[in-house]
Design a binder for these strands. Structure first.
Length: 276
DNA sequence: ATCCAGGAAGTCG
DNA sequence: CGACTTCATGGA
């Protein structure tokens, strides 16, 4: 896999560790569109158009540096995948989702998005996030940016509740107010280890163990967390329960996969969800 | 109509 | 702590 950059392009030749469908459909991001011959990804106020061709992927964007980091292009996923196969025998999962990469997304956008995701379904999560962007986000060329933090500081509880997010409206409001009041520092989790960062993030209203793990993995690049959702519980019950009978699935999986937890979770999640 | 969707907060023992 | 209930919304 060879990566080169131009002024408004990132070109990936021989993309054995990059498949935009895998990346977008493995549950880490909600603002994207997939068409027949290309896909579009939005992050904050930025946009990237991904063209997949024969033996080549081209990322078209005005923010090359941002999306180079966003797609984590400095990380060797071939090494990660062979590691997962050798250590944990995740052959089928890695082959199926061979092009998965864990994105480096913005903490504020991820926190609000995954608060909305709790006990919700994907189409409706996307709908609510889009509504949030349309109402409070800056109008960019053909889309709305994710709202700037300071803009949402002024949004009332009633405004959040009118997003159609149900009881999550008050979660969003209180979380934004905590950030506004300085009770939560968006930059701090970068500096903490996963365990401490998780406790810290769970201070946010509407953030429990699973959402906290997603925030740590998708925004703060903590690879040693293992988000346990309904799909992972299915995998666990079907394939792993016979190995052991631990009391805490999250702890069991985190200990089993260690620093590979986040990666293992993504391949397991994607494989399980796409195969009914 | 009932159930469910990438769970979390509230309550109780 | 651990188990148990409630919580909006919309689609199947």
């Amino acid at each position: 896999m060879k990566i080169t950059t131009q002024e408004n392009k990132i070109i990936i030749e021989n993309p054995i560790d990059f498949n935009i469908i895998h990346i977008l459909d493995c549950g880490q991001i909600f603002r994207y569109k997939i068409f027949d011959n290309y896909a579009v990804v939005y992050s904050l106020d930025k946009k990237c158009v991904i063209e997949t061709m024969e033996n080549k992927v081209v990322l078209n964007t005005e923010d090359v540096d941002y999306f180079y980091n966003f797609f984590d292009l400095d990380t060797d996923y071939s090494a990660i995948k062979s590691n997962l196969i050798k250590q944990f025998n995740l052959v089928n999962q890695v082959e199926y989702g061979y092009g998965i990469r864990i994105l480096k997304q913005d903490p504020f956008e991820i926190i609000l998005s995954f608060i909305i995701s709790a006990n919700n379904n994907i189409p409706r999560i996307k709908q609510i996030i889009n509504r949030l962007c349309e109402r409070y986000g800056e109008k960019c060329d053909d889309f709305y940016a994710f709202p700037k933090t300071e803009i949402l500081f002024n949004a009332s509880l009633e405004e959040f509740e009118s997003l159609g997010a149900g009881y999550r409206g008050k979660y969003l409001y209180k979380t934004v107010q905590m950030i506004k009041n300085g009770d939560f520092d968006l930059a701090l989790p970068y500096e903490l280890n996963s365990e401490k960062a998780k406790v810290y993030i769970m201070n946010l209203y509407g953030v429990g163990p699973k959402v906290a793990d997603c925030i740590l993995l998708f925004a703060y690049s903590k690879n040693d967390v293992f988000p346990v959702d309904t799909w992972i519980k299915k995998v666990y019950k079907d394939e792993m329960l016979k190995e052991n009978t631990p009391f805490n699935i999250n702890l069991y999986l985190k200990n089993k996969y260690g620093n590979m937890s986040g990666f293992a979770q993504q391949y397991l999640f994607y494989h399980r969800r796409e195969n009914k």
